[in-house]
Design a protein around this nucleic acid. Structure first.
Length: 875
RNA sequence: GCGAAAGUGGCGGAAUUGGCAGACGCACCAGACUUAGGAUCUGGCGGAGCAAUCCAUGGGGGUUCGAGUCCCCCCUUUCGCACCA
C-alpha cells in the first residue's frame, strides 16, 4: 500500500467535479409536478439582497435549509427548495452614483456573482423557479396587486408626517426607524416631513394579524410576542372633553381671520356642552378614573395646539421649543429619557361626566400619532401623569381605592383591582363595572364610545427612489387619479437615467416616463413617480416561486394550493416584524382577493442565530468579516457548511473560529480515507446484500444475528441513524448530529486493524459505509456524492432512501448502571438491558465497593430505576 | 423601567423526560512515525490530592433518595420594547 500516503482528501478536486455534474442535471433539485403523487415539502430560506457577496449569515441560513431539503428528498418528498433575489433597493443607486454603473447592470452582475458562490457551496436550489424582484416579469405583479388593492380600498393616499431619511433621500416606514434613526444609516437621524404618500391599509387586518398569531404554534414564541407588541392592541374608550369658550372678547378677536376652528366647530357656542362646542377627543384605557382627571394634555403637534398657538405667539414659541427639544432628544437617541415637560395653554376643557373644568396643557410626553394625540391626565392613577402633576403642582384626586384593604393606597395607585370613590353616582363600582357603565353613558350622551386602538399604523409604501417598482397610477388634471390599465402593465422603469443626489424622485426628472396620455380621457397626464417600498417585493415572492414563469397571472392558484403553506421558513430574527408581518398581511389580502385559500404563509418558522466573530457581530467597520469564499477556498464547501452546523445549535449565536473549520475538514478527511480504504471490500458484497438486517422468523426470533465486532459497529450505526432522524423531525440540533456522525466514525476507525484483517464481513462493511455516506449527505453533499460513487452505488445519493434505524439492532443488550450511595456515585455495575429491578438491586448490592461501604450501616431505602440507576440510602 | 433568552473546563459546546456533568470538536501536553507537515496515529486533558477521596454547572436558599435540569431570591450578559395613555 505504498501509494496510500499519496492519496489525500482534496475538496478542491472533488467539489468542482460534482458542481459540473450537478449543473448538467437540472432535474436533480427540481420540484416535481403537483400530480407526482408524493407528499410535498416546501422549505424556504429568506432570499438575499444581491450585494455581490454572500456573508456568513447567509451561509449558515442556507446550510440549515439545504440540509433539511436534502433530508426531505431522501425521505421521498416532493421538495420545493427555491432561491431568488431581493433585487430592488437603495444600494444599487448608491453604487450607480459611485461607479457610474446603471443599477440594473450592477444588480444583475451581483446576482451572477452570488449565484456562483451558492453553487460553490453546493446548495441544492431549483433555479428553474428563480425570482428576481427587479425584473419587470416580477414587479408587474406588484403593480397588479397594487391596483387590486386600490380597487378594494386597501390603498389610499394621504398627506402625512413621514419619516424622512436625509441620507436615503426618501421616506421610511415606521418599522424602518430604529431609535429615531434610519435602519440602514444607524447614525442618521430621521426628519419629519409633510408629504402626500401612498399607504396600504394594513390596519384593516390588525385584529386578524393579532388573532392569527395564536394559531402559529410553529413559530417561535419570541417572534409572536414581538408581533403582538408591534400590533399593540388596547381596549379603551374615546371620550370628548368640551373646549370651554374663552371670554367673548378674546375669542371674537381671533375667530374670523384666525385659525380655522378645528374639529368642525362652527360658531362660538355659549354653553360648553352645547352640541356645537369644540370637542377634544381623548383615548383612555381607564375611563373608570375619569373623575380623577385634573387636566387635559395635548401632543405638541395636535391640531388644536396649532390653533391655539396661532393666536398666542408666546405659547407658539414654547411649543416650538418643545418640538425642537424632542427632535434633539431623538438625535441623541434617548427619546425615552427626556424629562416630562409641559406648558399650560390658558384654555380649559370640561369633563363631560361631571362638568368639571380642567386646564388644557401641551406636554412633550403625549404622542401625536397614537390614539387621538390627546389624553386626560389622571395623576392619582397613572405614573406618568403623577410625575407630571408633581412637577407642575397640578391637583391629584384619588378616585380608586384598592379592593383589598391591606393593599397600600399610596399614589399613584395604578391597579385595576379597585373600586371607585369620589366619583359621584358611581362610587363603589368595581373598575371593570365602572368602565362598562361609563362607556354606556358616553354613548347615550353622544360624547364617547368604546374604542380599540392599535399601535400598528398603515404601511406607507411610497419611496422617492428610482430603483423600485413604479406605482401604476396616472395623475390626470381632469380625471384625477387613474389606474394604469392591466393590459398596459408593467409600467417599466426607464433604462437611461441619471442618478443624482438631488432630492425628490429621480423618475420625476425623466420626461419620457412622466408624460403619458390619460388612459381615461386621452389628454396629457403625469405618471406617479414614487416607487414602492422593497418590502412589497418580499411580501409575496415565495408564492411566485411555485409558478415563476407565469406570464398571465402572479401564479396559478391550483399550484399554490398544492405547495402552501410553506412547511418550513428559515431566516434571521431581524425580520420578525418587518418582513414577516407584511408577508402575513399580503397573504390575507390575496386570500380575500380569492387567489389563495391559506390564511398564513408559513406553518413553521425558524430563526437562526447570528454569526459572530470574537464575540461581536461581523461588520466591515469592525474589520472582523470572514468571507465565505476564503473558507471554501481553504477548506472546501463541505467543511465550511458542516462547521456552520456543528459549532452551535442553529438557533443560537455562532462564534466563527477558523480552527474549528480546520477540525471539521480533518474529520472529513478521515471519513474520506476510511471510506476509500474499505470501499473495494464493500464493493465485493452484492448490491442487495443486507445480511445483518434482522429477519424475523416464524417464531418471531431473529433468524440472523450479527455478533462480536460486527454487532458492535452495526449497533452504533443504528443508534446514530435513530438520533439523527429524530433531530430532523424537529429538534434540529444539527451540532449534535454532526457529533454523532463523528462518534460513529471514531468507532469504525478504532476497529481499523480488525477491518484490515478481514474480521468484519464485506456485507457489514458495505452497510456501515453506505449508511455513513447517507447520513453525511445532508451536511456534506460533495463528499457524500463522491463516496457514494466510490462505493459503486448507482444514481444520486439524493435519490437514495434515508436509512432506517432497526430498533432491535440499536438496542444494547447490556447496560452500565450507576450505583449511588446517598445520591453520590460510588460504582457502576453491568447488567442485562432487560434486567428487572430485583436483579439490578441484587447486582448493585453484590458489588465489592458497595459491600465495604454498607458494612455496619443500615440500608434504609433502595431506589432502583430500571435502565437508569440504583441509589442506596444508608445511615 | 418592562419583557424574553442565556450563564457549564482554556474555548465552541453536550447532557431530549429530574438519574454516571463535561459527548463531539478546538486549543494545549506527552509519545510514535517521518520524504519535517498547517500531515497521520496513540495517550492525556475541570480543580485539589501520591492516593483513597473531596470539590465543581453565575451566587444564595429550597423541594427530592437524587438537581445543570424544578421552585424562590439575587448578580451578570444578550436581545426585544421603551412615555402606546
Amino acid at each position: 500500500m505504498a501509494e496510500e500516503t499519496e492519496l489525500r482528501y482534496d475538496p478542491a478536486a472533488i467539489e468542482p467535479k460534482w458542481q459540473q455534474r450537478w449543473a448538467a442535471d437540472p432535474k436533480l433539485y427540481a420540484a416535481e409536478p403537483v400530480d407526482c403523487g408524493k407528499p410535498k415539502y416546501y422549505v424556504l430560506e429568506m432570499l438575499p439582497y444581491p450585494s455581490g457577496q454572500l456573508h456568513m449569515g447567509h451561509v449558515r441560513n442556507y446550510s440549515i435549509g439545504d440540509a433539511l431539503a436534502r433530508h426531505m428528498w431522501m425521505r421521498g418528498y416532493n421538495v420545493l427548495h427555491p432561491m431568488g433575489w431581493d433585487a430592488f433597493g437603495l444600494p444599487a443607486e448608491n453604487a450607480a452614483l459611485k461607479n457610474n454603473t446603471p443599477p440594473r447592470q450592477w444588480t444583475l452582475a451581483n446576482i451572477a456573482a452570488m449565484k456562483i458562490q451558492m453553487d460553490r457551496l453546493g446548495l441544492g436550489y431549483d433555479w428553474a423557479c428563480e425570482v428576481t424582484t427587479c425584473l419587470p416579469q416580477y414587479y408587474r405583479w406588484n403593480q397588479w396587486f397594487f391596483l387590486r388593492m386600490y380597487e378594494k380600498g386597501l390603498v389610499y393616499r394621504k398627506k402625512s408626517k413621514v419619516n424622512w431619511c436625509p441620507e436615503c433621500a426618501t421616506v421610511l416606514a415606521n418599522e424602518q426607524v430604529v431609535d429615531g434613526c434610519c435602519w440602514r444609516h444607524e447614525t442618521t437621524q430621521v426628519d419629519q416631513r409633510d408629504l402626500v404618500q401612498w399607504f396600504f391599509r394594513i390596519t384593516a387586518y390588525a385584529q386578524e394579524l393579532l388573532d392569527g398569531l395564536d394559531k402559529l404554534d410553529g413559530w417561535p414564541e419570541k417572534v409572536r410576542t414581538m408581533q403582538r407588541n408591534w400590533i399593540g392592541r388596547s381596549e379603551g374608550t374615546d371620550v370628548d372633553f368640551f373646549l370651554e369658550e374663552q371670554g367673548s372678547g378674546v375669542r371674537d378677536q381671533g375667530s374670523d381671520a384666525g385659525p380655522s376652528t378645528p374639529l368642525g366647530a362652527k360658531s362660538a357656542p355659549s354653553s360648553a356642552q352645547d352640541d356645537n362646542a369644540v370637542r377634544i377627543r381623548v383615548f383612555t384605557t381607564r375611563v373608570d378614573t375619569i373623575f380623577g382627571a385634573t387636566s387635559v394634555q395635548l401632543a405638541p403637534q395636535h391640531e388644536l395646539v396649532t390653533a391655539f398657538t396661532a393666536a398666542d405667539s408666546r405659547l407658539k414659541a414654547q411649543v416650538d421649543e418643545m418640538i425642537d427639544q424632542q427632535k434633539k432628544a431623538r438625535e441623541a437617541g434617548d427619546l425615552g429619557a427626556i424629562e416630562k415637560h409641559g406648558v399650560p395653554t390658558g384654555r380649559f376643557a370640561v369633563n363631560p361626566y361631571n362638568g368639571e373644568r380642567v386646564p388644557i396643557w401641551v406636554a412633550n410626553y403625549i404622542l401625536a400619532d397614537y390614539g387621538t394625540g390627546a389624553i386626560m391626565s389622571v395623576p392619582a392613577h397613572d405614573e406618568r401623569d403623577f410625575e407630571f402633576a408633581m412637577k407642575y403642582g397640578l391637583p391629584i384626586t384619588q378616585v380608586i381605592k384598592p379592593i383589598d384593604p391591606a393593599v397600600s393606597q399610596e399614589l399613584p395607585f395604578c391597579s385595576e383591582e379597585g373600586v371607585l370613590m369620589n366619583s359621584g353616582a358611581y362610587d363603589g363600582l368595581s373598575c371593570e363595572d365602572a368602565q362598562k357603565r361609563l362607556q354606556e353613558i358616553a354613548v347615550a350622551g353622544n360624547f364617547g364610545e368604546p374604542k380599540v386602538t392599535f399601535r400598528l399604523k398603515d404601511w406607507g409604501v411610497s419611496r422617492q427612489r428610482f430603483w423600485g417598482t413604479p406605482i401604476p397610477i396616472i395623475h390626470c388634471e381632469s380625471c384625477g387619479l387613474v389606474q394604469v390599465p392591466d393590459e398596459q402593465l408593467p409600467v417599466v422603469l426607464p433604462d437611461q437615467i441619471e442618478i443624482t443626489q438631488q432630492g425628490g424622485s429621480p423618475l420625476s426628472r425623466v420626461p419620457e416616463f412622466v408624460n403619458v396620455a390619460c388612459p381615461n380621457c386621452g389628454r396629457p397626464a403625469r405618471r406617479e413617480t414614487d416607487t414602492m417600498d422593497t418590502f412589497v417585493d418580499s411580501s409575496w415572492y415565495f408564492y411566485r416561486y411555485t409558478d415563476a414563469k407565469n406570464a398571465n397571472a402572479p401564479f396559478d392558484p391550483e399550484i399554490v394550493m398544492y405547495w402552501f403553506p410553506i412547511d418550513q421558513y428559515i431566516g434571521g430574527v431581524e425580520h420578525a416584524i418587518l418582513h414577516l408581518i407584511y408577508s402575513r398581511f399580503w397573504t390575507k389580502v390575496m386570500r380575500d382577493l380569492g387567489l389563495i385559500v391559506n390564511d398564513e404563509p408559513a406553518r413553521r418558522l425558524f430563526t437562526q442565530g447570528m454569526v459572530i466573530k470574537d464575540g461581536a457581530k461581523m461588520s466591515k467597520s469592525k474589520g472582523n468579516v470572514i468571507s465565505p469564499d476564503e473558507m471554501v477556498g481553504r477548506y472546501g464547501a463541505d467543511a465550511t457548511r458542516m462547521y456552520a452546523l456543528f459549532a452551535a445549535p442553529p438557533d443560537r449565536d455562532l462564534d466563527w473560529q477558523e480552527d474549528g473549520v480546520a477540525g471539521v475538514s480533518r474529520f472529513l478527511a478521515r471519513v474520506w480515507r476510511l471510506a476509500t480504504k474499505y470501499a473495494p471490500l464493500a464493493r465485493t458484497a452484492g448490491m442487495d446484500s443486507h445480511p445483518f438486517r434482522i429477519e424475523r422468523g416464524m417464531d418471531g426470533a431473529p433468524s440472523t444475528q450479527p455478533t462480536g465486532l460486527s454487532l458492535k459497529l452495526l449497533r452504533k450505526l443504528h443508534q446514530t441513524i435513530a438520533k439523527i432522524t429524530l433531530d430532523f423531525e424537529g429538534r434540529w440540533h444539527f451540532n449534535t448530529c454532526v457529533a454523532a456522525i463523528m462518534e460513529l466514525v471514531n468507532e469504525i476507525q478504532a476497529a481499523d486493524a480488525q477491518l484490515a484483517a478481514g474480521e468484519v464481513p464485506a456485507p457489514v462493511v458495505r452497510e456501515l459505509l453506505r449508511s455513513l455516506v447517507l447520513l453525511l449527505a445532508p451536511f456534506a453533499p460533495y463528499l457524500a456524492a463522491e463516496l457514494w460513487e466510490e462505493l459503486g452505488e448507482d444514481g444520486a445519493v439524493l435519490r437514495a432512501s434515508w436509512p432506517q434505524s432497526d430498533p432491535a439492532l440499536a438496542k444494547e443488550d447490556e447496560l452500565e448502571i450507576p450505583v449511588q450511595i446517598n445520591g453520590k456515585l460510588v460504582t457502576v455495575v453491568r447488567v442485562a438491558a432487560d434486567a428487572d429491578a430485583k436483579a439490578i438491586e441484587a447486582a448493585a448490592l453484590a458489588g465489592e465497593k458497595i459491600q465495604s461501604r454498607t458494612a455496619g450501616k443500615t440500608v434504609i431505602k433502595v431506589i432502583v430505576v430500571p435502565g437508569k440507576l440504583v441509589n442506596l440510602v444508608i445511615r
